[in-house]
Design a protein around this nucleic acid. Structure first.
Length: 205
DNA sequence: GTACAGATTGAG
DNA sequence: TCAATCTGTACT
């Protein structure tokens, strides 16, 4: 069952935690679908959050999607080569979002599925455990780029989220966000990164 | 117009 | 520990 708008418009920290265990579904042009369970997220809550691209209410062509009502895709390039897949949260006009940092691939047993994955990524068999354990890597795996900017997860035919397993709160770890030390001690120390305890697809630090 | 640094990754 | 790689953003 596809997640509805009401899921994404909840408070951002709640969405970041509730996204754990949900299933990202990506339909490619040939009809094949890749799925992955979300195992790691990070919340960015502008305009106060100094780590947010919307710090101080800054609105640019690049971060506009952060301001959309919950459920839209905010995707951007970092370090000149890696896409970062974010989902807008909260109400329209509030620059809040959740970065998807890692997913656990769901591999169908059928030969056809295996063929698709191997077409996307050569030698997938040995690489699968390490293919999606990071925000840049999961975008490469799911074939996500600028063309998905602003896409609505509630309506899109190419990408959406489905209800997955419920993750018990005792199995959710809260930790500091990664790669944002420039935001200063206060914001860098907020424990706004969440991951499923013990899951081996969580990004390594 | 030009400089610069980044919500990462993988090699050495 | 460090380079790759490039665009959005800020500043001249």
């Amino acid at each position: 069952m596809r997640l509805k708008r009401s899921f994404y418009t909840q408070p951002t920290l709640k969405v970041a935690k509730n996204l754990l265990g949900q299933i990202i579904c990506r339909r490619f042009g040939n009809g094949r679908i890749l799925r992955g369970k979300i195992v790691e997220t990070e919340a960015y809550i502008g305009p106060n959050d100094k780590a947010s691209h919307a710090i101080g209410g800054r609105m640019t062509k690049r971060n506009l999607a952060e301001f959309l009502i919950g459920g839209h895709i905010y995707i951007y390039l970092v370090y000149g080569m890696y896409w970062q897949f974010n989902i807008s949260t909260s109400k329209k006009g509030k620059p809040e979002c959740v970065l998807i940092r890692a997913i656990e691939p769901i591999i169908e047993k059928s030969p056809k599925s295996e063929f698709l994955i191997s077409k996307q990524i050569p030698n997938h068999k040995s690489q699968i455990p390490k293919l999606t354990n990071g925000p840049g890597k999961l975008c490469r795996y799911l074939g996500l780029d600028k063309s998905f900017y602003g896409e609505d997860l509630v309506r899109s035919e190419k990408i959406w989220l489905e209800k997955g397993e419920k993750v018990r709160s005792k199995n959710i770890i809260a930790a500091k966000r990664i790669g944002i030390d420039y935001a200063g001690k206060y914001w860098a120390s907020r424990k706004w990164r969440f991951y499923i305890k013990g899951n081996k697809w969580v990004s390594k630090k």
